[in-house]
Computed example of a mutant assay.
Amino acid sequence: MLSIGEFSKICEVSAKTLRYYDEIGLIHPDEINADNGYRYYSISQLKKMLFINRLKSYQFSLEEIKAILELEEDQSGEKLYSALSRKRREIEQQIKALDYTLKQMSNDISNLEKGIPMMSRLDTIEVQLVETRPMNLLFIRLMMSSDDYAKGYGKYFSGLYTKIATEKLTLLGTPMTIFHSPEYNPAGNDTEFAIPIKEAVQGTRALPGGLCARSVLKGSYSELTSVYAKLREWVENEGYKLVESPYEVYVTDPNQVTVSEDLVTKVYFPVQKSI
């Protein structure tokens, strides 16, 4: 048996943390002395603790680790494989995001060295006034938190495409997202995922056409806030007002591009002339 101190030293986990892990049911001491309360761990528990440490290094939360530990032995291999694969995809996305941030930061530093203002990018965003046609949308509308957006895009668009294929509907355009909330709320926003189709069936609605201020973003979705700011500025300066919820149309499939610079997104602000 190992004292909590020995166990802590070998696994490089503090005694305080081990006591917390015991409280939340992650790993319990193999034995607790009834007289003095000293905690002891068995040699066999070293493997479990090292496994926990490995999962933590892979950025699994304690809640996720506990769920993995509770898997039945005959299922743990398959489900652990799935959990690791999912976490790897998440980390890959984080790496891509950090890589883009580093490139953006390097570009800002380079521009500042040349005397170019950091937010000069806004001046290069073009806005056009266009007339859009009415569309028939197959849609799903729900409240989405900011953390759910990335996952939700794939999940809900996939469901819409499945319905299109199953019911042999006619696709007329690329996916789009309509943002109905009057203000941003990290806890949840009224979001509509939609795909234009020909047939008017259950689960579809009409999107009226009309005058729109439009801008095209070629690059990372993280730049969309700049596009929105530019569009709102243009609407104000040109004497228009926003009359419907803004929406984004995804010209390229993010799963089909290798670098974020190849993404193409159109942003529409339905407008009318102010009186």
Rank of each mutant, 00 (worst) to 15 (best):
M1D: 00
A15F: 04
T17I: 05
L18N: 04
Y20W: 10
E23A: 06
I27S: 04
D30A: 01
E31R: 07
I32E: 07
N33S: 11
R39F: 03
S42F: 05
I43M: 04
I43C: 04
K47Y: 07
L50R: 11
R54C: 08
Q59R: 13
E64D: 00
E64I: 03
E73C: 07
D74T: 13
S76L: 15
K79R: 14
S82T: 10
S82K: 14
K87R: 15
R88D: 00
K96M: 02
Q104S: 13
S106Y: 01
I109C: 06
S110P: 04
S110F: 05
S110Y: 09
N111I: 00
K114H: 06
P117V: 05
M119R: 14
S120Y: 06
S120N: 05
I125V: 11
E131W: 01
T132R: 03
P134M: 03
M135Y: 05
S145Q: 07
S145C: 09
K151H: 13
G152H: 12
T162C: 10
K163L: 13
I164V: 12
E167F: 11
L169A: 03
F179I: 01
P182T: 05
P182N: 09
N185A: 02
N189S: 01
E192C: 04
E192A: 06
E199T: 05
Q202F: 04
R205H: 10
P208R: 06
S222R: 00
L224D: 01
S226Y: 00
W234K: 11
V235L: 00
S245D: 14
E248V: 02
V249M: 13
Y250F: 15
V251F: 02
V251S: 06
P254F: 02
P254S: 04
Q256Y: 12
Q256A: 15
V259R: 10
L263A: 10
K266R: 14
K266S: 14
F269A: 09
K273I: 14
